[in-house]
Design a protein around this nucleic acid. Structure first.
Lengths: 305, 305
DNA sequence: GTAATAGTGTCTGTTAGACAGTATTAG
DNA sequence: CTAATACTGTCTAACAGACACTATTAC
């Protein structure tokens, strides 16, 4: 049956015919999910007298199978034919790490033709956040040899500007450094921004990596960008504190994400309308106790009225 | 060869073996792209003496084949096995409408199991913007019977708040109205926002549609949200004016996107650092001429310092 | 008391928002 | 001249950023 005959059927007949003869006419890619899940954790080994510092961490698994066997990767895996992406990514996270019930949002879909050595794979990445107190003990499962939280540090090593014709080009060399107790994995990524007229396009390319699998360094850097952007105009950071939290703790979360100190008065004015005072207090050291707040579900972002 | 044997190979051997025996073990979905491309156009039939009003328009094609034959849809189609998504979506747009060289960014990946009646299809949607002056005459091609620009209007008909246990739920009834000269297509979409603690999730569901194909009403509303969000903190709106433009024209673009009037002084202060005076002027009516500007490529968003 | 952090009062410079004015044009 | 839109000066209220202060605690 040729295309013309096929189109002269009514829709029901067409679909039946299509399923019989057309459905697998072209080669299809596979679809996987990848989950960049972050938490804000207390640094090890600190002075008893001082309040502990915090840091941003990401969950990685060590791959038990080829390809990139023994390398560290984001949790994730193939989407089943009968599940949607949100379901698939949560299922994979649970299977590989035991982590459930986290905040997760879709991030970006990666489709470079050669991004997987096995075959054509398109991957839909997710950004997830979880508070330490909601975490069960980690347990590696499935394809994973091991699961660990890695401290995330990204540094811009170099910025180079070029002007080619009417286009302005900015190339940033970024180093991504992920460390666990005894393990360090790194990647060098080039971030290219091309501005031509009003049209600005940014792309990320891994130029060197040590211990990381696939294009996951790009995905991690992209998720960091998104996280840093959204923290300023959404409630996203509240997913990184307990249900009841203090304003100094919340401020620490913002500082860790943004990588810089914030003004206390300013921060508290900003946070005030997003929180509700529980009336409780908590004592954490040799100093004045801190008030406990909870998120104000009635808060609406009004930056863009 | 079982899984264990497979994993004892070295990586090169593994990949060769995988391609022979594992590659097509599981049923795969198809991947398509969908392009929501907008422009800001001058309304028809206006008073000579007054400056014409402008409106937001989206490009739709009438489907020449099943399913949804004769219905209106976003441009797009299947990704080839040897091309990435950006390439695929631009190729499809060109094939179906003749439009090339536009600003485009990836929007969201839609994966509901039943979103296509033929088979399992995951679709990656794109948001694109183009200035009228860069548009060639439209020409339907390929699977498309016809191509038209539709004026976009979305109205919130009703907002209902519910509180269930600790979760706050907001259900908005949205009407999407798309009109061309003689054609009107509509859809009713339910926008549900669930807030539980700090965790807010929003979903869109089409409840009724007339003349629109697939879940494209959801995609269109989602792209409108993104456009309205980004216009405030990026240079995205400059893709909707000519290379040289006046500030009143630019302001009109912002007003059309946001659906409300902006304060002139305020807008000009905001826009000032994003533009460069060309020294030229343009006369468009029986009133003072307007200065022509161009985009300032050195502008960087500093809202999130 | 001391050292440490939590939380507040208040000053200052900047910015958002609005009003009302002037400038320029075609007809 | 009039009607229309482009553009600007300036007032006010709100806000961001910073400093310095008070409050509370463990030891």
């Amino acid at each position: 049956m040729d295309e013309h005959q096929l189109q002269n059927l009514d829709e029901q007949e067409f679909i039946e015919q299509y399923r019989r003869t057309e459905k697998d006419r072209y080669e299809k890619p596979s679809i996987t999910t990848d989950m960049a899940i972050f938490t804000v954790a207390t640094e090890q080994g600190n002075d008893k007298r001082k309040k502990p510092e915090k840091e941003l961490q990401i969950l990685l698994i060590r791959r038990g199978g080829h390809p990139y066997k023994g390398h560290w990767a984001l949790a994730g895996g193939f989407m089943g034919i009968d599940e949607d992406l949100d379901t698939a990514v949560r299922r994979e996270l649970k299977e590989e790490t035991g982590v459930v019930g986290v905040y997760a949002e879709q991030l970006y879909t990666w489709s470079a033709v050669d991004r997987d050595p096995r075959m054509r794979i398109v991957s839909v990445s997710y950004l997830a956040l979880v508070d330490q107190s909601k975490l069960p003990p980690l347990q590696a499962g499935d394809d994973a040899d091991d699961v660990k939280w890695f401290t995330v540090r990204d540094t811009i090593l170099d910025v180079r500007d070029e002007v080619i014709g009417g286009a302005a080009k900015r190339i940033e060399q970024i180093e991504l450094l992920l460390t666990s107790d005894d393990i360090t994995v790194t990647a060098a990524v080039e971030r290219t921004t091309v501005t031509e007229g009003a049209n600005t396009q940014t792309s990320l390319t891994v130029t060197r990596q040590d211990g990381l699998a696939f294009d996951h360094a790009e995905i991690i850097l992209y998720s960091l960008e998104r996280l840093r952007g959204k923290v300023n105009y959404t409630n996203i950071a509240f997913n990184l504190v307990e249900d009841e939290f203090t304003l100094p703790d919340l401020q620490q979360v913002y500082e860790v994400i943004l990588g810089r100190r914030l003004n206390k008065v300013q921060f508290r004015r900003y946070a005030e309308e997003m929180v509700i005072d529980t009336g409780k207090e908590i004592r954490t050291g040799a100093y004045r106790p801190s008030k406990l707040y909870r998120y104000n579900p009635a808060w609406v972002q009004d930056r863009w009225k």
